[in-house]
Design a protein around this nucleic acid. Structure first.
Lengths: 244, 244
DNA sequence: CGTCACCGATTGGTCTGACCACTTGACCAA
DNA sequence: TTGGTCAAGTGGTCAGACCAATCGGTGACG
């Protein structure tokens, strides 16, 4: 049997997860008051500090608002939430939410070329070495999961070369959402394995300092996955814009 | 006289801010161990729960890693940080960091047209009413600050129309970084006031369901600020890529 | 002499109980 | 109506204690 690390979740983690689920899945309506810390502690059978830590983290992510003496209220995560809650939205009810996955891939496909162009403009030849090294490892990889990990590493170098803090932080957020879901997505991404040539062309364009070519090359890298997933998910997700 | 709400910072907030500053400004190197919770509590003259709440929030934003029994270590915020720490990076040492501001405007200019095209494709005529209402209020506004607030509201409608959760969360994050810094940026943004026509054209293109035209119109809306800020900041920021 | 099991010191995790600060709403007086 | 007072409920903070995990040194064993 395949053993895996035991899950050790601290009490405050579990409280956080429960409250987060309630907020995201609509068990608690926007504007609604949360139970008081004391009530939550009693109902959940934990101490008040544990509840507090969880609520403070919820406030940190702008999902609830706590006012001294006035209780805590639920905020609209669709209006105030950050990219950091993307992982939670991506895997909903145990499975991957098609609408969210589609949105992630869509954004990836649109923003990737922009970043590639910036990298060509600002990074240029300095990036060639690092990119080639990743490509070499990519070429020897057949496992879908490992392949995606390397692809992320490749883009990490590109984002570095773009030298723009906002894209860097965006990438970090998307990666944090993407990476934990990779095992679940691995089958759908199997078609990408072996498409090394597109990555090589992109690296060449970036190394040559040619933004326009880099943009086009990036589109060729990203478009296949996009179109395949779009067709797969739109056929699946007939529920419409379930997650906007 | 113009009154404003008194600022009340809780103890754990202050601890959080101090630790965050240390991490962001490099007072604590990446990989370095933070002082233990007990030491921090004693040094800062506060209780341990207060320190814990701050550290848990730091962990929530992926800026530190805490291991049961093993202390807390500093993570590389450039590699793991999310868009939520953009506000902190934007205003550094009391002033606006040119490199970061440039990056924000740059991303805005690049991503805005993409979102506009999506809104035209998916929102279409349904958005016309809401957009027109904002434009009407925009037309009657001369104050630079209020004008920017309305511009954000306008884009909020557009992002809603794009019907893509990732762009929605991105926008939320950028807005959270942008909004607090607006007063400091207001002078630089004064040139935008009165440019209502571009917004009207964009609304028309979105309402017509014409993605290509909407993309171009969005570029015309965003480009002026971008170019003016680029020239202003590149002249100012001779320190190079201080914040990547 | 090197290796490894063990144990104690250190650190984070949790709980309890108490008190302070703030908000809210009801009630009362000017 | 206006303003003040007060009590109840809520979040904020503190102190001390104990549990659980990690880490490092020390001594026994090979």
């Amino acid at each position: 049997m395949a053993l895996q690390p035991v899950k050790r979740k601290s009490v405050s983690d579990q409280v956080f997860d429960q409250v987060l689920d309630e907020v995201v899945d609509g068990g608690l309506a926007v504007g609604e008051q949360l139970p008081s810390e004391r009530q939550l502690a009693e109902v959940l059978g934990v101490s008040r500090p544990a509840v507090r830590e969880a609520l403070q983290r919820m406030a940190q992510t702008r999902l609830v608002e706590v006012r001294h003496g006035g209780g805590a209220t639920v905020r609209d995560f669709r209006k105030y939430g950050g990219l950091d809650l993307l992982p939670r939205l991506l895997v909903r009810d145990g499975g991957v939410d098609p609408a969210v996955a589609l949105s992630v891939v869509e954004a990836r496909t649109a923003v990737g070329p922009i970043i590639a162009a910036l990298a060509a403009d600002r990074g240029g030849p300095a990036l060639t070495g690092a990119l080639e090294r990743v490509i070499d490892r990519l070429e020897q990889t057949t496992d879908s999961l490992a392949w995606q990990e390397l692809a992320l590493e490749y883009w990490d170098v590109v984002v570095d070369g773009a030298d723009s803090i906002v894209y860097r932080l965006m990438f970090n957020g998307l990666r944090a959402a993407y990476e934990p879901a990779l095992p679940a997505l691995a089958p759908a991404l199997a078609t990408e394995v072996g498409q090394v040539e597109a990555y090589r062309l992109l690296a060449a364009a970036i190394g040559a300092g040619d933004p326009a070519t880099a943009r086009a090359a990036a589109e060729r890298v990203l478009a296949p996955l996009n179109s395949s997933l779009v067709s797969a998910f739109t056929a699946l997700g007939t529920d419409g814009g379930g997650a906007r």
